[in-house]
Amino acid sequence: MMPIQSAAQLGSALRLARKQLGLTQPDLALAAGVGVRFIVDLEAGKPTVQLQSVLKVIAALGVELALTGLDLP
C-alpha cells in the first residue's frame, strides 16, 4: 500500500497504475468519462481537481481509495 499525503503523490500513483494497465491518458479519460486534460492535471498533481472525477478515474483503473487510522463504525 502506498501512503498518499499530497496531490502530487496521488497523481504519481494513478499514473503508475495507468501505465501498469497499458492505458494511454486518452484511454483512461474515455474509460472514466472525463476529459484528457483532467487526466493530465490529475497526474501532474494539480490540487484543485474535482473529487468526484478523481473517484471516477480510480474506479476506471480498478483500484480503490481507503482511509486508514480511523475507528469507523
Rank of each mutant, 00 (worst) to 15 (best):
V49R: 15
I39W: 04
L42M: 13
I58R: 00
V54M: 08
G11E: 05
G11H: 10
V57I: 07
V54Q: 05
V40S: 06
P26T: 09
V54E: 05
Q20V: 04
L55A: 09
L72P: 13
Q52L: 06
A31R: 14
V54F: 11
L65A: 14
L28H: 04
P3N: 04
A44G: 15
Q5Y: 06
L21G: 13
V36Q: 14
A31M: 06
I4V: 15
Q50K: 07
R37K: 10
T48K: 06
L30A: 13
L10Y: 03
V36L: 01
A7E: 12
L28Q: 02
S6Y: 07
G33F: 05
K46Y: 01
L23V: 03
S6P: 14
D71P: 12
V57P: 13
P26K: 04
G45Y: 11
D71M: 03
A31G: 01
L72N: 12
Q25H: 04
P73E: 08
P26I: 10
L67H: 03
L65Q: 06
Q5R: 14
L21H: 14
G35H: 10
V54C: 08
F38K: 13
L14A: 02
L55I: 09
T48N: 14
A13R: 12
G62C: 11
M2E: 10
P73A: 12
V54T: 15
M1D: 10
A29R: 08
I39G: 00
L61D: 08
K19S: 06
E43Q: 12
K56M: 00
T48L: 00
L42C: 08
A29M: 05
L72F: 11
K19M: 10
D41F: 01
L42A: 08
G69S: 07
S6A: 07
E43P: 14
R37M: 00
L70R: 07
A8W: 00
L70S: 06
T24F: 05
E64L: 00
T68C: 02
G11V: 12
Q9E: 15
L67N: 02
T48V: 01
V34N: 07
L72H: 12
A66P: 05
A17I: 00
T48G: 03
A66C: 08
G11Y: 11
E43N: 11
A7L: 01
V49A: 08
L67E: 10
G22T: 09
G45I: 14
L65G: 09
L28G: 04
L30F: 03
A60D: 07
L67Y: 10
Q20E: 12
A59F: 02
A32N: 06
A17F: 01
T24H: 12
D27C: 05
D71S: 13
L21R: 15
A8I: 02
L10H: 05
A13Q: 08
L51I: 15
K46D: 01
S53C: 03
L42R: 11
A13C: 04
M2N: 10
G11M: 05
L61E: 09
A29Y: 03
A17V: 00
T68R: 13
V49I: 15
L51G: 07
V34H: 08
L55H: 08
I4A: 00
M2L: 06
D71Y: 02
R37E: 05
Q20K: 15
K56P: 07
A44P: 12
V54Y: 12
L21W: 03
F38W: 07
L72V: 14
R18F: 09
S53G: 12
G22R: 13
Q9K: 12
V63C: 13
